[in-house]
C-alpha cells in the first residue's frame, strides 16, 4: 500500500485526504471532523472502483491510522467483489 497524504483544504471539517493503490485498486480516504454534543466525532469516507463506504470512528480511535488500515481492507474487499 502506497499512500500519499494531501494537505487538507481550508475546510475545517476535512482533516485528511489519503490516496493510494493497493492490489491494483486505487483507493481514496477522506477524514472529516464533526462537532457534536460529546466533542468532535470523526468520519472516514472511502472510495474505490466507484464503491463507497463510510466509517464512523469510535471514540478513542485515531482516525488517521484507522483510515490507513481501512483503505487496504476496503481495496481488497472491492477487488474480491469484482
Amino acid at each position: 500500500m502506497r499512500a500519499t497524504v494531501e494537505p487538507s483544504a481550508s475546510s475545517v471539517e476535512e482533516i485528511a485526504n489519503l490516496a493510494g493503490v493497493h492490489g491494483g485498486v486505487g483507493v481514496r480516504a477522506r477524514v472529516y471532523a464533526y462537532p457534536s454534543a460529546r466533542g468532535t466525532r470523526h468520519e472516514i469516507v472511502l472510495e474505490a472502483n466507484g464503491e463507497r463506504a463510510i466509517i464512523d470512528v469510535p471514540r478513542g480511535e485515531s482516525p488517521r491510522s484507522l483510515a490507513e488500515r481501512a483503505m487496504t481492507i476496503f481495496a481488497d474487499s472491492v477487488a474480491v467483489r469484482g
Binding site: 463506504a53 463510510i54 474487499s77
Partner: peptide, 11 residues
C-alpha cells in the same frame, strides 16, 4: 444508501 455505506465497509 447512507446506512448501506456504513454497514458495507467489508463485504
Amino acid at each position: 444508501e447512507d446506512l448501506y455505506s456504513r454497514l458495507n465497509v467489508l463485504h
